[in-house]
Computed example of a mutant assay.
Amino acid sequence: MQLAIVTGASKGLGDGLVDSFLEKGIPVLGLSRSETEGRENFTSLLYDLSQSGVPLTAAEHIWQEIEKSGATQVTIVHNASVIDPIERVGKLDADRVEMAFRVNVLAPMLMTNVWLSKAKEWEGVLTIVNITSGAGSQAISGWSVYNSTKAAINMHTQVAGLELDQVNSSHRVIAYNPGVMDTGMQQTIRSSSEDAFADVGRFKELKQKGDLRAPRTVAEALVNFLLKKSVDNGRIYSVTELLEDK
C-alpha cells in the first residue's frame, strides 16, 4: 500500500502534486497553513511551519498517520516554501529572513530528521523529496535569502542521501527542481521593484511569452518518475530531465 504526504498542499505545485498522486490511486495527506479543497482519499492537516515548534509537532502527527494507514511505501514531498523577502542585502527585514529560513530550511530538515529516525524501526520504504530551485546554485541579485535557503536544502539532500547509502538503507532522500511555473510565487516575483530585484523584467517577459509551465505538468513529471523509476540517493533532479526521460 502506498501513501503520499505533501507540504504546502493548498496551491501551486503542492495542489498539482495532490491531484497527481490521487489520480494514480495513492491516498494523500496534505499539510498547509490554510484549508485545502476536499477530495476523496485526501486528508488535510493544518499546520503553519513558520512557527517555532510546529514542524516537530507536525512530523510526529504525520508519522502517526503513516503507521495508522498501514502503508509500506511512503513518499513525502517537502513543497512548502516562501520566496520573500526579495530585497538587497542591507535592506533585509530580520523577521522575514528568519521566517524564510524556518519554512524553507528548518522545517524540512527537522521533519526529515524525525522521520528517518522512526523509519529505522519501520518495515516500509520512505522516499523524501525536497523541492528546490535553480536559485540554489545560481546567485541572483535580490534573492540572497531564497538562494541561501535552497542552497542549504540542496546540501542537506546530498548529505542525507550519502549517509543513507553508507548504511545500505532502503530509504531515499532526493531533491527536485521544478523550474519556473505559473504560480502565486511567480506573481510575487513579478510584483517586486527593480530596485529590490534587478531581473524582474525577465520574469515578466516569461509570463508574457507563455514560457511558464503549468504546476500540474511539473507535478505529473515528478509523480510519474517516482512511480516508474528507482531514484539515486542525494541526487538533485530537474523537471527538464524528467520530461525528456518520459
Rank of each mutant, 00 (worst) to 15 (best):
residue 2 Q to S: 09
residue 4 A to M: 02
residue 5 I to N: 02
residue 7 T to Y: 03
residue 13 L to F: 10
residue 13 L to R: 02
residue 15 D to E: 10
residue 23 E to S: 06
residue 31 L to N: 05
residue 37 E to Y: 01
residue 43 T to R: 13
residue 43 T to P: 01
residue 52 S to R: 12
residue 54 V to Q: 11
residue 55 P to V: 07
residue 56 L to S: 14
residue 56 L to A: 14
residue 61 H to F: 14
residue 63 W to I: 04
residue 69 S to M: 14
residue 73 Q to P: 01
residue 74 V to M: 11
residue 74 V to E: 12
residue 86 I to R: 09
residue 88 R to P: 00
residue 91 K to H: 15
residue 96 R to L: 15
residue 98 E to P: 01
residue 102 R to H: 14
residue 102 R to S: 15
residue 111 M to C: 12
residue 115 W to Y: 06
residue 118 K to V: 03
residue 123 E to G: 06
residue 123 E to Y: 04
residue 125 V to A: 11
residue 125 V to D: 11
residue 125 V to C: 06
residue 137 S to E: 10
residue 139 A to I: 08
residue 140 I to P: 00
residue 141 S to L: 13
residue 141 S to Y: 11
residue 145 V to I: 14
residue 145 V to M: 12
residue 145 V to F: 13
residue 146 Y to G: 04
residue 146 Y to C: 08
residue 147 N to L: 10
residue 147 N to G: 07
residue 149 T to S: 14
residue 151 A to W: 09
residue 152 A to H: 06
residue 153 I to L: 10
residue 153 I to Y: 02
residue 154 N to F: 04
residue 156 H to I: 02
residue 162 L to W: 08
residue 162 L to D: 07
residue 163 E to D: 12
residue 169 S to C: 05
residue 170 S to W: 00
residue 170 S to E: 10
residue 179 G to I: 05
residue 180 V to K: 06
residue 182 D to P: 00
residue 188 T to P: 00
residue 190 R to W: 05
residue 194 E to V: 07
residue 195 D to H: 11
residue 197 F to K: 02
residue 201 G to M: 05
residue 203 F to V: 01
residue 205 E to H: 07
residue 208 Q to E: 15
residue 208 Q to V: 08
residue 209 K to M: 13
residue 215 P to K: 09
residue 215 P to Q: 11
residue 230 S to T: 09
residue 230 S to K: 08
